[in-house]
Design a binder for these strands. Structure first.
Lengths: 339, 339
DNA sequence: GTGAAAGCGCTAACAG
DNA sequence: CTGTTAGCGCTTTCAC
């Protein structure tokens, strides 16, 4: 499987291999007929450029690293899709690594990507701890965080306005007549989830209703965990809330499962709102009303910010906070109207 | 951001840079104290090896390409997760490319990966046409196809025993009293789907019931398409089948949606069986009875076969066909029993 | 317009 | 055991 190189072409074309390089790179310091002749020979001989060699001398790989906790999480995979497409539009390819929600692994793969000379890294951290965890490494390569709000940390990130998301959602629930709303799934240590809870609480205050939040240290992105947690809240009978605002769609799915089990109907008995608008949310029989994170926009923004960082040597960082929107489906009921 | 190299280390350590290389590579032709001293300096100076340079001389990148149609498809993303983890276990990293169900794009990214000198490629094709489409390129790099059954084409692949899957599923449906089963979603041009339909039809014949298959040229992996198609079959009233065997879980989800809309209850009025056992299938309110593709095993096998191909220069190919299993959830009813 | 040559960071003979 | 040296395939000055 010996592949043919620029030198082989040069020999056949009877030119120096620098000339072949010029022909290939679209340089203008080469005669038109020479270029065409060389290019034709490349074609005929089935020449494929060796990007690795080019990377060596150019000192850039046109490679981006993408670190996610789990690519099989619907939120992640949707982000990954858009990120990959956008990156490729700009001539970049993606190296994918799963960190499996493990900080040590996250650090490992980050270092790995650095040693592979990626031009930049996009990181979808599962918690706010990632920043501290990776801090010493971040200086080695342009990095942008996605999805997790890092508040005012000096590193680039793009996220949604989490505070506003739950604020909007709470207002909607209120407009549907709900006065007893449970916020389900606050996890300490994640500023993203801190902000979501705050948005809910502030909205409650403004609306003159009492906030109730159910905290947890479990994963907030697993429906299993959600259903475990939801079992606890449904143990109280009668269930004292008319609506549940889940911190994530996955959690909401878990609530669905636990509600079915407990014989509580959604939305007839209690309304359910999610956050993220993952692909699952739109499934038949689920049809979850939720807060949409503009995933494609976030993905695009992340790539663009990263490429800008790569191009401009000027250090600095940018925070891009996108606006979430309410997606109304069928998991919330207006309790002002008659049943 | 100038990174430090082996030479910088050599200078500080007062040795030749070959010695540094030896220390790093764990060679045994180096003195113990020298190694330790060098390694300590590497540590102190924060040296990170340049994998690209190493790749150049080693003529292997320890990089695998993964081409999927859409990483945001739940089947793909689950496969991707396991593939990445397995690859990394063996010291390989993954370059991810989406082909977006486009044969030209698929070829493009394949070439791209070749020029990036990946050591091998894992391809999850969306149809059987991919083989013909990529044939001239496949000789350039070890490749293994995943999920799509290529029948007896001379290229490595791992897939599930599709024929057996639908056979088992049909028998199960029969055991639950179903005699009028519609097979939903045969697409010509895919041997995978050909085999699935055949498994169903042969089972019907053996069981002495009449096969009915609904063909389509739509995508078989989109719930949207599934619901469009399902609308057509539900237009017939009364609906003449007691069970529907969908060619994929995504299609089954579409059937769910159309059934809800048509006021047909699952499983009370008609039973529904899927194929793939994607993550969605286990969601509350869906709980789809389906045929499981052992995705983790497939992923692992794909990586292992590929690495073997990479290591053994001996050409040749292998076909690995795994056994599917029935996963019983709640979308099928036993119609022998009283309602 | 084209060729010669240096060098990207590293490994692997080959000497000593 | 350690140093010297020759590349890996390519881009890019610098001459001609």
């Amino acid at each position: 499987m010996k592949s043919i190189t620029i030198k082989d072409i040069a020999k056949v074309a009877n030119v120096s291999y620098a000339t072949v390089s010029r022909a290939l790179s679209g340089s203008n310091e080469i005669g038109e007929e020479t270029r065409e002749r060389v290019l034709k020979i490349c074609q005929e001989m089935g020449y494929t450029a060796n990007t690795v060699a080019r990377s060596m001398v150019m000192k850039q790989t046109k490679l981006l690293g993408l670190i996610v906790a789990n690519i099989d999480n619907p939120f992640m995979s949707e982000m990954a899709y858009h990120i990959e497409m956008r990156a490729r539009e700009h001539g970049y390819n993606l190296m994918l690594c799963n960190s499996s929600h493990d900080l040590d692994l996250e650090r490992n793969v980050f270092e790995l990507l650095v040693s592979r000379q990626v031009d930049g890294i996009i990181l979808v951290p599962s918690s706010s701890e990632s920043y501290a965890n990776l801090k010493p490494l971040i200086s080695k390569v342009p990095t942008v965080f996605v999805s997790e709000n890092l508040r005012d940390l000096p590193e680039s990130y793009v996220s949604v306005d989490n505070y506003r998301g739950t604020h909007i959602g709470t207002e909607y629930l209120y407009s549907q007549g709900h006065r007893d709303i449970l916020y389900f799934g606050l996890r300490k240590g994640s500023v993203t989830h801190q902000l979501r809870a705050e948005g809910y609480m502030d909205a409650c205050r403004e609306l003159g209703i009492e906030p109730h939040v159910f905290s947890s240290n479990y994963s907030l992105s697993s429906v299993q965990a959600g259903s475990q947690m939801a079992k606890q809240i449904f143990a109280a009978s009668p269930f004292p809330y008319s609506a549940i605002f889940a911190a994530t769609d996955s959690l909401a799915l878990g609530v669905f499962a636990a509600a079915d089990e407990a014989g509580i109907r959604i939305p007839e008995d209690v309304s359910l709102m999610g956050f993220d608008n993952i692909l699952y949310a739109d499934l038949p029989r689920i049809r979850l009303t939720t807060i949409e994170q503009p995933k494609k926009t976030m993905a695009t923004a992340a790539v663009d910010i990263l490429l800008e960082k790569i191009t401009d040597e000027t250090s600095g960082y940018s925070h891009r906070i996108l606006t979430p929107t309410l997606v109304i489906r069928s998991s919330c009921r207006n309790i002002l109207e008659k049943k």
